[in-house]
Amino acid sequence: MNLPLLLYETLATIQMKNFIFILIGFLCLNTNAQLINDESYLDLEFLKFKTDLLHCVIQKDKEKLKNFLADRVFESKDTCGYPGCTKDEFIKYYFDESSEESWKDMLTVLRFGFSRIEDENSNNIIPHDKIIFQGPSYLKKIDTDNEIIVLGENVNIREKPSLKGTIIRQSSFEKFSCDCNIITMKKSTYQTIDGINWLEIKLKSGQIGYISADLTSYSVIKEMTIAKINGKWKIISFFNPPGC
């Protein structure tokens, strides 16, 4: 028996097994991480646009914000009618003196990045290139009527909708099933107890759990679409999706 050769083969087998375990662990981690995948890097001009817009939002500069808007912006309050708000109307209705919530909503969208997609809508408010960026980036990864994503690390999932409820486990940037459509949801789906808005979710095991809605995608009520118009990136929509 060739002991050196046998020892070498044994070590090689152990190393291969360890590599496989590490690879599986990485893939499992990567599956969750890929739910939020900012694709802004795919277009350098868009990346610069997003960076400049982020600075504008942090500074809460209404005048500068106009430079990032298309001539018409689709919004969900239906205050302007078709074909959307002019720049001045949009600023007036969303970014007036009491506009803290709108700045917060826009910052949240920027925080979770954008997906690059092909716009298949032929009835656009104004003509633009087919390739657009839509945020938050996880929108194309979930069915918002039936799924949510945890937007935080080590978020508690409890057995009951209460701070006294037993912690089932913790979750970080993970997807769960829920009856999230505001029109069809049950009474137990969304409850306010102990000053916290609790969302009922279903774990992969089938077990029911409760999580703070403010720490999930359910609390992100705005979507933003940015398209290239005459060679320049512009915000063409900032709205609440249907059902919110």
Rank of each mutant, 00 (worst) to 15 (best):
L5Q: 10
L6P: 05
L7T: 13
T10E: 13
L11R: 10
T13V: 12
N18A: 11
I20P: 05
F21M: 14
L23I: 10
I24R: 09
S40Q: 08
L44V: 15
L44P: 14
K50T: 07
L54A: 13
H55E: 12
K60C: 04
K60M: 08
L65A: 03
N67L: 12
F68K: 00
A70P: 03
S76F: 04
K77D: 14
T79M: 11
Y82L: 15
P83N: 08
C85M: 06
C85D: 09
E89H: 06
K92H: 15
Y94T: 01
Y94S: 01
F95G: 00
S98K: 15
S99W: 00
E100V: 14
S102A: 09
W103T: 00
V109S: 05
L110M: 13
L110F: 10
R111T: 12
F114M: 10
S115L: 12
D119W: 02
E120V: 13
S122W: 09
N123K: 10
N124D: 11
I126T: 08
I126C: 04
H128L: 00
K130V: 06
G135M: 04
S137T: 07
S137Y: 02
K140W: 11
I142P: 05
D143S: 15
I148T: 07
V150C: 07
V150D: 03
N154M: 14
K160Y: 12
K160V: 13
K160A: 14
L163K: 09
K164H: 14
S171F: 03
S177G: 12
C180Y: 00
I183F: 07
K186P: 15
K187I: 15
T189K: 03
T189I: 04
D194A: 08
G195T: 05
I196F: 10
I196Q: 11
W198S: 01
L199D: 01
L199A: 03
I201Q: 04
G206I: 08
S212Y: 08
A213C: 13
K222M: 05
T225A: 12
A227P: 01
K228M: 03
N230T: 00
G231P: 01
G231A: 03
K232T: 07
K232V: 05
S237E: 00
F239E: 07
F239G: 03
